[in-house]
Amino acid sequence: MLELRLVQGSILKKVLESIKDLVNDANFDFSSSGLTLQSMDSSHIALVALLLKSEGFEHYRCDRNTSMGMNLGNMSKMLKCAGNDDILTIKGDDVSDTVTFMFTSDLVREIFFYKIADFEMKLMDIDNEHLGIPEAEYHAIVKMPSAEFARICKVLASIGDTGDIGTANIVLRQNTTVDKPEDATVIEMNEPVSMTFALRYMNTFTKATPLSNTVTISLSPDLPVVVKYKIAEMGYVRFYLTPKMEE
């Protein structure tokens, strides 16, 4: 028996929008501690790791560990039928090969649900590779407004990486003299680090911008970059991308 209720159903919609362009199919792993997903893109140079902790759900029942393979494109289509203020319920069981998404509006919740919609989606068998990602010390960790990071990636990608139309340099300095803490840019640097990444992937990661006001970028020369979007009270979406290196 699996039953999860998320009052802010829009969170799962945003999560799907942030990962569906990177990964087509993925296993959602449910345990008593929460919902996790780990999947690589088809070229195996980028990885997404999702955590939604059980405490973040209004109701969370997972009798035994379950893995559900879902097509993220189809799941996104179903979740798009939910209003942004809808409560989302996910139901599954051990015997059927489907998962049910139920959307209920919260207009007059104490009395009755104004609208109930449910969608049943077929599950699929996915041979998911799982990578062990060790905790690491990073040379530099940058915490900055997520919208600003998205803007920078978009601008750089539009100029292109061939040098045909010229070059672009963007310097971001630490800035903590801001009214709101989420507007700050904080750079923790243990050692200088210089790395090159495929902007196409970085731009895909920024689809997670609606999930969080801030983004954390962790860099070490020997490791894939980690681009982390914290989901308040619930967990995170983390993206990993391997660097481009000179032969």
Partner: peptide
């Protein structure tokens, strides 16, 4: 030439 390692190179395949 510029090359890009796959993730297995950095992380343990469980």
């Amino acid at each position: 030439p510029i090359h890009q390692q796959v993730l297995y190179y950095y992380f343990l395949d469980l």
